[in-house]
Design a protein around this nucleic acid. Structure first.
Length: 257
DNA sequence: ATGGCGCGTGGAACGCGA
């Protein structure tokens, strides 16, 4: 079973590239972030044509997440995080697919910091941690994957100084991420790449892609039941270099059946 | 040293992202 995550930066603008990626890499499950469309605009038929069933949680202009599954309907288990009823951002969607619980997340960016957006990010991470504690207590194979908008360590960015004041790598953001790991979740890509140097995002600006000025903010966290089944993981880096690409590359984990 | 792009909305210029 291969589970992937891809921040597509707009499903309308990205649809040809997204369909191409699905056809070429054929993940069993794909979690999508930043679909940037209301529910009515989600192209479910296009995915159905190539054998994927989908659930989605849209929003006008911004955010928005979806879960696609190859040949089987994802069974939705939750949308949104508890704890802040007035929060209307579409950033969390959770489903069960073939006995695996899958949460797809688009964690708030948090810039500029300090400020209300950074406060929202930290609150959201607290709410996520609470949900992940519930999931862990179920003791079923679980993956939480998506755009975490956290650069976990200085080894996860081409130049830590370039982003020193950014919300993505503030100590508070990193501490909140580290707490998830300490709670017993395994960062799949970090585990398989202990020296860092793996990027999942390259800015559109300043020739960042050409210079390989990237960082790692898309993650896959595995529950103990699933960490035992991890056989390989990676980044579909080449897809970032194509015409009309997203600024993120897809990530994936391969799990023993 | 600085600035640099792209998407959605809506039909110009701006909010937002990272």
């Amino acid at each position: 079973m291969k589970i992937a995550s891809f921040n597509i930066n707009g499903i309308k603008a990205r649809l040809p590239r997204l369909l191409e990626w699905l056809a070429e890499t054929r993940p069993s499950v794909a979690c999508l972030q930043e679909i940037k469309t209301q529910d009515e605009g989600f192209p479910a038929d296009e995915f159905k044509k190539i054998g994927y069933y989908a659930i989605w949680h849209g929003q006008k202009s911004f955010n928005g997440v979806a879960i696609l599954a190859d040949g089987v309907r994802p069974v939705e288990t939750q949308r949104g995080l508890a704890g802040e009823p007035e929060d209307d951002h579409s950033r969390y969607l959770e489903a069960e697919v073939n006995g695996v619980r899958i949460a797809g997340i688009y964690l708030p960016n948090g810039n500029p910091q300090p400020g209300p957006k950074f406060d929202y990010k930290l609150r959201w991470m607290k709410r996520l941690r609470a949900r992940m504690a519930e999931l862990k207590s179920l003791e079923i194979p679980t993956i939480v994957t998506g755009d975490f908008n956290v650069i976990p360590t200085d080894a996860d960015i081409w130049n830590p100084k370039a982003m020193a004041d950014d919300a993505l790598m503030q100590p508070e953001s990193r501490d909140a991420y580290l707490r998830l790991l300490h709670d017993g979740w395994t960062d799949a890509i970090a585990t398989h790449n202990p020296n860092g140097g793996v990027w999942t995002y390259w800015d559109y600006q300043a020739g960042a892609w050409q210079k390989d000025h990237g960082f790692r903010i898309d993650h896959a966290l595995l529950s103990p039941e699933l960490a035992d089944r991890l056989v390989a993981c990676g980044v579909d880096k080449a897809h970032r270099g194509r015409e009309k690409a997203s600024d993120h590359a897809p990530i994936w984990v391969q799990l023993r059946d």
